[in-house]
């Protein structure tokens, strides 16, 4: 299990992507899965920075088996369940869409399971990704 603490005040996005690419190299994760991890981290972290009023974020990666990678994201910001947010209507042409909720959409479609919990004043999101 690998973990990194990311103070919001200290370039959390850049540090997260270094952490993720380092993890991917060590464990020889395929580049497509690495891209998914980077996108997920970008979506979650940028969302927390924008709305969450959090001070500290935490990313944990766990290679549970050859087939599954678990990513746990937690922050100490305002209670927010991203899984309960509205998703965009993708059957509407882009030019008529309300351009929001895309990040969440991305996180959901790149992961196999998603669970949210508010525990000890933390938002905890547990995501699993399938390894092909």
């Amino acid at each position: 299990m690998d973990q990194i603490l990311l103070p919001v005040a200290g370039q959390p996005l850049q540090n997260a992507s270094k952490f993720l690419t380092g993890f991917a190299e060590t464990h020889q994760i395929a580049s497509e899965l690495t891209q998914s991890l980077l996108i997920i981290a970008d979506e979650l972290i940028s969302n927390t920075i924008k709305y969450g009023e959090a001070e500290e974020l935490r990313l944990t990666l766990d290679l549970g088996s050859e087939k599954q990678l678990t990513l746990i994201y937690s922050d100490d910001g305002n209670p927010f369940n991203p899984l309960a947010a509205d998703l965009p209507d993708l059957d509407t042409p882009v030019e008529d869409r309300d351009i929001g909720g895309l990040g969440l959409m991305m996180v959901q479609s790149m992961t196999e399971t998603q669970e949210y919990e508010r525990t000890d004043d933390l938002n905890v999101l547990v995501l699993t990704l399938r390894i092909d």
Partner: peptide, 19 residues
Amino acid sequence: FISSTGLRVIFTVLKAQKS
């Protein structure tokens, strides 16, 4: 690499062009 924030910029241009 592109994230949803990047997509939004392209969608904004797309909306303006299509209009």
